[in-house]
């Protein structure tokens, strides 16, 4: 190592300071997370409950049916749908009859996972969708969370939907959002997953 002087003291000093900065940053992050996580998760749960309630007009109460999450894996694998059911709730009317099923479905979007809430009536009619979580391209993929797109779904009674790039002409067709075909596919996939699982419940 001719000509190169290694100043051990300096290296140790620099490393130590960087180490301290990282430790302090890590502690701050942990602290911020600890403080905000309960608030954030409580709000997300409340938002989800509100979304489910808005889909089922006459619903009296909802009940969590976690066992559907397990049974859905096989149903979705058989149907060839690449999606995961994150949670499933049954909606009941005042006299205890099942009105339908509300799901949070996770599918792959353009950048990250998209979580879509899907409401399906007991007879298989779609009641509505909503985007719970997404990080799609602003101005393109984010249009999936606008009424123009979401209103395409309620009222349809089909076994599965497909995305088309022209104007939709059949009841099972959804016109892709311009510039956001991947996002549209992700949402349509989520809806198909919910429809397939609902069909298996009847």
């Amino acid at each position: 190592m001719q000509g190169v002087e290694i100043d051990v003291k300096r290296i140790l000093h620099d490393t130590l300071i960087l180490f301290v900065i990282c430790i302090v940053s890590g502690l701050l992050l942990g602290l911020a997370y600890e403080i905000t996580y309960p608030i954030t998760s409580a709000r997300k749960a409340a938002e989800k409950a509100a979304t489910y309630a808005s889909m089922f007009d006459g619903a009296d109460h909802f009940e969590d049916h976690a066992e559907v999450i397990e049974s859905s894996t096989a149903v979705l694998a058989d149907a060839g749908i690449n999606a995961t059911i994150r949670d499933c709730m049954f909606a009941y009317d005042a006299s205890g009859n099942v009105l339908g099923y509300a799901y949070s479905v996770v599918t792959a979007g353009k950048q990250a996972e998209i979580v879509t809430a899907v409401g399906v009536q007991a007879d298989g009619t779609l009641l509505g969708i909503d985007i719970l979580e997404s990080s799609e391209t602003s101005g393109l993929g984010t249009k999936a969370d606008e009424p123009e797109f979401k209103d395409l779904f309620p009222g349809r009674k089909v076994s599965s939907l497909k995305t088309v790039k022209k104007a939709a002409s059949a009841d099972n067709e959804i016109t892709a959002i311009s510039g956001a075909t991947v996002t549209t596919n992700a949402v349509v996939n989520a809806v198909n997953a919910a429809l397939a699982v609902s069909a298996s419940l009847n």
């Binding site: 701050l28 911020a32 905000t36 608030i39 709000r43």
Partner: peptide, 12 residues
């Protein structure tokens, strides 16, 4: 760190 803390605080 700073941005992430802001992100947490804003979300909450």
């Amino acid at each position: 760190t700073f941005v992430t803390v802001c992100d947490f605080l804003m979300e909450a």
